[in-house]
Design a protein around this nucleic acid. Structure first.
Lengths: 110, 110
DNA sequence: GCTATATTTGCGCAAATACGCAAATATAGG
DNA sequence: CCTATATTTGCGTATTTGCGCAAATATAGC
């Protein structure tokens, strides 16, 4: 496995793995439409500066897109991309590749 | 969304979102069979104590199972469970539920 | 019991991280 | 230009986190 890809994936998971950031993602997911930061920062009751920083992290990892509209930033979820990456990892762990089949039942080979 | 579940999911993602811990998961995934900690700690070239702690975190989050065998601990991946949780999140983000369809194309409603 | 191996735990340290506040910046709208 | 609103940035702080080393613990095998 590519070391860089592994690091990139770890960064994505880390970005999603913080409670308030995950809350932002959930919020964007549930409300179904792009939101500005003021609106988003309600959902995790933190200072707007904190929300801004969290959203920046999410943007850096490609989780959200930013669209400038006047003095606002409109954030939208990168639904398909993020979902695809998560599924890719799930597939790898699941062992759709060869290595799982010889294992799943071999754990009792003591 | 349940706050506790959200926190649990965040914890899982955080556990996976650290480079060396993700390396351990990859290693367990690729070698296809359970491993002890000595063997695993090679893959991320850290002290065995560090590997032990990382594996403990992964075990707490249900990523790996521990089986005691003599003085060794044999770690195995909880493949299906972890993959299922990742897919669940992917599905949620993807928006298999109602809210996505009105959105995907509405992001251009400026 | 003694020794060797595997793992865990205590400790300290350095770096990263999340946070809030206040100031700075950007821009809409008068 | 002035004001109001939205966002970012600088700064200080408290907490968390990853790490290595050494000591402690557990167990296999003699």
């Amino acid at each position: 496995m590519d070391i860089t890809r592994q690091q990139t994936l770890a960064d994505l998971l880390k970005a999603l793995g913080e409670y308030n950031r995950l809350s932002l993602v959930y919020r964007l997911c549930e409300c179904g439409q792009p939101q500005n930061a003021m609106c988003l920062c309600d959902c995790c009751s933190v200072d707007s500066s904190v929300a801004s920083r969290h959203l920046k992290v999410l943007a850096q990892e490609g989780v959200v897109n930013i669209e400038r509209r006047g003095r606002e930033r409109i954030y939208s979820l990168n639904r398909s991309e993020v979902a695809a990456k998560l599924r890719e990892l799930a597939d790898f762990i699941d062992g759709d590749s060869e290595q799982s089949m010889q294992t799943e039942r071999m754990t009792s080979n003591v």
